[in-house]
Design a protein around this nucleic acid. Sequence first.
DNA 1: AAGTGGTCTAGACCACTTA
DNA 2: AAGTGGTCTAGACCACTTA
Lengths: 244, 244
Amino acid sequence: METRKLDDSLPIPLYHQLYEIFFDKIEKGVWVPGCIIPTESELIEYYQVSRTTVREAINLLVQSGYLEKKQGRGTMVCKPRLVENLNKLTGFAEEMERKELVPSAKLVHVDELPANHPVAEKLKISLEDSIILIKRVRLADGEPIAIETSYWPKSIGEHLLKEDLESVAFYKILEQHGVQLLEADEEISAVAATKEDSFLLGVKEQEPLLQMERLTLDNNRNPIEFARTKYRSNRYTYHVHLKR
Amino acid sequence: METRKLDDSLPIPLYHQLYEIFFDKIEKGVWVPGCIIPTESELIEYYQVSRTTVREAINLLVQSGYLEKKQGRGTMVCKPRLVENLNKLTGFAEEMERKELVPSAKLVHVDELPANHPVAEKLKISLEDSIILIKRVRLADGEPIAIETSYWPKSIGEHLLKEDLESVAFYKILEQHGVQLLEADEEISAVAATKEDSFLLGVKEQEPLLQMERLTLDNNRNPIEFARTKYRSNRYTYHVHLKR
DNA sequence: AAGTGGTCTAGACCACTTA
DNA sequence: AAGTGGTCTAGACCACTTA
């Protein structure tokens, strides 16, 4: 039996106190995912409040995805959301760790490019500056998943070149050097595997690959990275969560 | 003066009819961004409904970011969000209109499938129910861009079948019938064009296409659509905005 | 002081699901 | 047929903003 009750004297609205009580029950597993919670009538009776108050509390939990209502059937506790890390700016390594795969990298090529290179414009590189290119094959549990070609302003890229480029999560390194990532825009398309792609990834030539071009900005909205990553489509799917 | 009124005989809830009226006023600029809309009392008086009904309608618009309430002051129309069209759940037609292209559709196939079809599980279809399949080629400025195969629970799909399937934005139709879209999850991958794809889109066989599989949920988190859309990758790029 | 939206009650009839 | 949540009404008192 539940002991916690509502307190009319608090400045917190009753429906919000109820919301917290319900939230606790879900968190603590008193209300088990997949099960029907008590009916509105029962909650009204038990907590001695009006239907409006019960419904407001429940609606808050429906909106945040903890409960699901079904007319005629009842109100159910949702299974905990599996992901919700979606739409977050992460690097390959972080993403694979989330999926409980072991990320690694095989270095293909490093270069320093002059400021007249096509990507200089995206990176807003000044004419005296130059660009660091790092091309790697990315693996998960030892299996090649993607080819990642990243371009960095020299001031940023220098931090990376001091590290072991085969074992490194670039974004974590940069954050350790005080580079604060803010956001990124990506363009996603489908491309055919070139001869080199097919060699590096072990796929057939012309096989469809998922290509992602990303421009990443720091907290001052200065570009710090342009990257083109081509994924083996049968090994990697891109997830997006959209709201109306 | 406004002429449009509520119709008690419709199967659409009053608060939803009110929501549509208010939505129109915002869309058409009758209620100007930054201005305070009529008070709850005035709306109650004018539309002859209860406060609950007015508040439910307004809350829908607050939730979708069109209105902003302030206790003691009133309810204000929000300034239109500049961008943030990214990561928003829109249909093909809405998306093309935003890009100032003229969207259209060519119907390929319509069908009713039994509840033992593989997508029934995604749509949480009960065994007595069935599934409406609508397959269309989507065009922008008359040029084929994508093949869209959508699956709907019969109760939802029926609304669509009454419409001209070649000229229609499905999501808008559904919203007119009181179906509130909430969110969607998408999986994006690259696939090779099949023989049929190549015929419908006018591309070579095996050419890489960008494939998007979307499961759309309504406000009660019930699935209302599963859709698989294959885009010509040279004509369409998917944009994503990520935050750290 | 007057007017706004915020919270809350008590009640009614309905559509939908389940037994 | 009984029980669920969905919709709707009429009313009350409150906290907050503005004049």
